[in-house]
Nucleic acid binder design. Structure first.
Length: 815
RNA sequence: GCCGGGGUGGCGAAACUGGCAGACGCACAGGACUUAAAAUCCUGAGAGGGUAACCCCCUCGUGCGGGUUCGAUUCCCGCCCCCGGCACCA
């Protein structure tokens, strides 16, 4: 009897995998490739079981694919730049590099103790110059193509993190990281022109058939395409006009006033012409400050004030008052809106409050009224016709608006990629030449968190010669948003050590797109839309052949403890290492997969983990019990026909389990039911061992079951299964094993128990051969005493409906 | 408000194409082994009822109310609740 000591097996096999470099791969055109990627990790210090769940999902599929003969790339890396490390440095004086590299070392150890099958030879960390130099290289390419540009704009500013945030990073008016209410600020900023791809990002999403509908919907909403028209309303008494955007140009005859966003450029000039400029601007200013942060608290009442000026409705030719309204957004459309109170609830609210005219121009049947020559036309039709007229008259045009805005990537912080640009008083903005990359982060010893960009305080960094004229110039001191780092790292894994290019296009052509990507739903918009954007940029640079980086996406659910998301601050973190110490890593891996389907949230349970440990010990004992006999009898072919009924049933279960497990992992990614199926197989094996009628071939039958089980369980519990595989006499480890194949003939049932329903209710069961004819089956069903009794009752009218008998395999009806 | 996903035993869940609801596991109970306990192995269990009793049989049961169907956790209509996302986007 060999005892099950999982912790010893963990150590033994982890060493074996490291020594044999078991998971390192190279391009091999003769093999089908499979690229499985889990979202890389922010090195926060410690991984808890919630983080780890995702890595286990990835490992199960990766190990399955290897056993199926795929050339599997399964890499890992670190999203290592970012604010927490810098904020920690301000607090405790430890340099971000020191803390980050320390955290990476610790977390890497945690993942290795779990036995995740990563190709560690390709490990990357975004905070290292050999990675971020390619951010800079790409930035320069984007600058050349006009996809990176600089402009002054109103930005979201987090006062606590002391930096700009992208719109995507503002959640409910607050900073996505620290939760502080975001304020608006005017700054000169670098932007990536993601809007260039807005339409393509939207349309191509339709083709992402293996992405969750939820994520696609979120992306669609985020891009927010709407078709409409821009129309100019001349300003009375001036040779100027206000351009509005509307999706309902068919209601333009009902536009009884015009509204400007408080940020609109005309607000300042109207203020100057007003009687009290100061009061005017104060009101506008108040609306602006309400804009984002104010909405966090919920309802901000609609408010506005009359500018004192009028515009001319270009269709009714009547003067309409111009108002400033707090619910008109400066950054959407043209920042000005025509108000049609009769056909827009918001405008109606506003018009009612300020007693502005309401004119109905579309009746209940969708037909235009009070609309001049368009009276009697259907709204849809009128929309086209009025747009055409506006175009002919040169006062408007049909257009498409997106909610998506360009991505502001400048950050006034230290711990990020330096933007590789130089400001020259003579030549303007000049990129750092490629042969001078990387622009490395200077070492800073004191982190204060005050003032401008920390890099601005390092004179030897800031003061440089202009690459063009050689004159004195000033280096850009902002760093890049860390989402730049994560928008293309999946390509770097295909060629992680290239020092000439971000990657060799040939290697990416082999490994990419990523076949299977898994990670948290919280990245549904930010990271996934930016990555899709970068994939298009690389494509347009001629470096890749595809535009969609991730073929299959799985968003895994979180692990809760006591009903809440695990977090250090809540103190409900479950540490994988303590679980491994108690039960071994395999039990932890198995439990996390068994408890629920991957995309579902789960509640952590210590006793559930213990159950998984018990199961592994049970598998171990079964294998141990049969080992000697199995070794003696060898693994040669079994003569199926000469087996006892119990042996045939055992084989049937084995092959049927192979079918189910393969389907569950490979096709459905329902790891929990795959584990259930294997538990059933083990239960069957115990029953067979205990009391099944056995022939001389029994050890072969048991061996077949056990070896299939060992291979199928190995993605979940690799250490234990490697050991059992070796115990059954196999050399070279599971790397040499093949995924079992279901023999359909063996898996087929010899007899079927068929439930018999009468009027949809179960009334009996008959046991039959699988090749029975319908007539025979019906006769047998009718012969069942209970079925017979019920049918007689029906015939006697005791029950009020007609008899309808059906067998589940083969529904049949009798009167 | 809009969009997406859910609601099934004491608990986590399963049911893949409209066909035996609750597989598998946790917790629980009983038995075997043991001086005893732990571990292990075996057995039981949706709720209610019928039968002296066993085999068994009946009724109800997948958030609520309707519908389609021989038959609905599954499809259709209406509603309630929970989770996630978006939210003055003109």
């Amino acid at each position: 009897m060999t005892e099950y000591h999982p912790q010893e097996l963990d150590a033994k096999w982890q060493k074996h995998w490291a020594d044999t470099q078991a998971f390192e791969v190279t391009e091999d055109p003769s093999k089908p490739k499979f690229n499985f990627l889990e979202m890389f990790a922010y090195p926060s210090g410690h991984a808890h079981v919630g983080h780890v769940r995702n890595y286990i999902i990835g490992d199960v599929v990766s190990r399955l694919k290897r056993l199926q003969g795929f050339n599997v790339l399964h890499p890992f890396g670190w999203d290592a730049f970012g604010l927490p490390a810098e904020n920690a440095a301000i607090k405790n004086g430890i340099h971000p590099e020191t803390s980050t590299l320390g955290n990476i070392a610790h977390m890497k150890g945690q993942l290795q103790r779990l036995g995740i099958s990563y190709a560690w030879g390709r490990e990357l960390a975004t905070c290292l110059p050999n990675y971020y130099r390619w951010n800079q290289w790409l930035f320069t390419r984007m600058f050349e193509k006009g996809l990176a540009y600089r402009r002054r704009s109103t930005v979201n500013w987090c006062p606590v993190d002391a930096t700009v945030l992208a719109n995507e990073q503002v959640v409910d008016g607050a900073c996505w990281r620290c939760g502080t209410a975001v304020v608006q600020k005017d700054l000169e900023q670098w932007f990536f022109k993601i809007t260039h791809y807005a339409d393509d990002l939207l349309h191509a999403a339709e083709g992402l058939s293996k992405w969750p509908e939820k994520v696609l919907t979120m992306q669609r909403n985020w891009i927010g395409r709407s078709e409409g028209a821009k129309v100019k309303f001349p300003i009375q008494g001036e040779d100027a006009s206000i351009e509005v955007f509307t999706t309902r140009i068919d209601t333009i005859y009902g536009a009884t006033f015009v509204m400007l966003a408080p940020e609109h450029g005309l607000v300042t000039s109207f203020a100057k012409q007003s009687q009290d400029e100061k009061a005017f601007m104060e009101k506008a200013q108040r609306f602006r400050s309400q804009d984002r942060a104010g909405r966090l608290t919920g309802e901000v009442a609609k408010e506005g004030f009359f500018t004192g000026r009028f515009a001319i409705n270009p269709f009714t030719h009547k003067p309409v008052p111009i108002w400033v309204a707090n619910y008109v957004l400066g950054e959407y459309g043209t920042g000005a809106v025509m108000a049609v109170p009769a056909h827009d609830d918001r405008d109606l609210d506003f018009a009612t409050k300020y007693d502005l005219p309401i004119v109905t121009v579309v009746n209940d049947d969708g037909v235009l009224v009070e609309s001049g020559k368009y009276d009697g036309r259907l709204a849809d039709d009128a929309r086209r016709a009025i747009t055409e007229e506006a175009e002919e008259r040169g006062i408007g045009e049909g257009t498409v608006q997106f909610r998506l805005k360009d991505w502001g990537i400048s950050r006034q912080r230290y711990w990020g990629t330096p933007i590789p640009m130089i400001h020259c008083p003579v030549d303007g903005v000049v990129p750092v030449p490629d042969d001078q990359l990387p622009v490395t982060l200077p070492n800073i010893t004191e982190f204060t968190g005050r003032g401008d960009s920390p890099l601005a305080s390092v004179p030897e960094f800031v003061n440089v010669a202009c690459p063009k004229c050689g004159g004195p110039a000033r280096r850009e001191t902002d760093t890049m948003d860390t989402f730049v780092d994560s928008s293309w790292y999946f390509y770097r894994f295909a060629d992680a050590h290239n020092d000439q290019m971000p990657f060799d296009p040939k290697k990416v052509a082999y490994w990419c797109p990523v076949d299977f990507y898994s990670g948290g739903i919280e990245h549904a918009i930010l990271h996934l839309i930016y990555s899709r954007f970068f994939a298009r940029v690389f494509h347009d640079l001629g470096m890749t052949e595809h535009t969609e980086p991730f073929t299959h996406l799985l968003t895994q659910g979180m692990v809760l403890k006591d009903g809440a998301v695990m977090s250090k601050s809540k103190g409900n973190v479950v540490d994988p290492d303590s679980m491994i110490q108690k039960y071994g890593s395999d039990a932890l891996r198995l439990y996390v997969m068994f408890v629920a389907p991957p995309e579902k949230e789960v509640e952590w349970s210590d006793s559930g983990l213990e159950g998984s440990f018990r199961f592994l010990a049970r598998v171990w004992r079964a294998a141990d019990q049969w080992r000697e006999q199995a070794m003696v009898s060898g693994s040669g072919a079994v003569e199926h026909a000469s087996l006892t009924a119990a042996e045939r049933a055992m084989r049937r279960k084995t092959h049927d389990t192979v079918r189910r497990v393969t389907q569950d992992i490979d096709v459905r990614q329902q790891m929990n039911t795959a584990v259930s199926a294997m538990m059933e197989l083990v239960n069957e094996l115990y029953a067979f061992t205990d009391k099944g009628e056995r022939s001389a071939q029994a050890p072969k039958v048991a061996r077949e079951a056990i070896e299939a089980l060992v291979v199928m369980l190995s993605p979940f519990a690799p250490h234990t299964m490697e050991e059992l595989w070796q115990m059954f006499g196999h050399q070279g480890g599971l790397a040499g094993a093949a995924w079992p194949v279901c023999d359909a003939d063996v898996a087929k049932a010899e007899e079927l128990e068929i439930p018999v329903q009468v009027n949809g209710k179960l009334r009996g069961r008959v046991t039959v051969a699988p090749d029975i004819t319908d007539q025979e089956l019906e006769a047998l069903a009718l012969a069942d005493p209970n079925v017979h009794r019920i049918l007689r009752k029906l015939a006697e009218g005791e029950l009020d409906s007609f008899g309808d008998i059906s067998t589940l395999a083969d529904p049949a009806v009798v009167a």
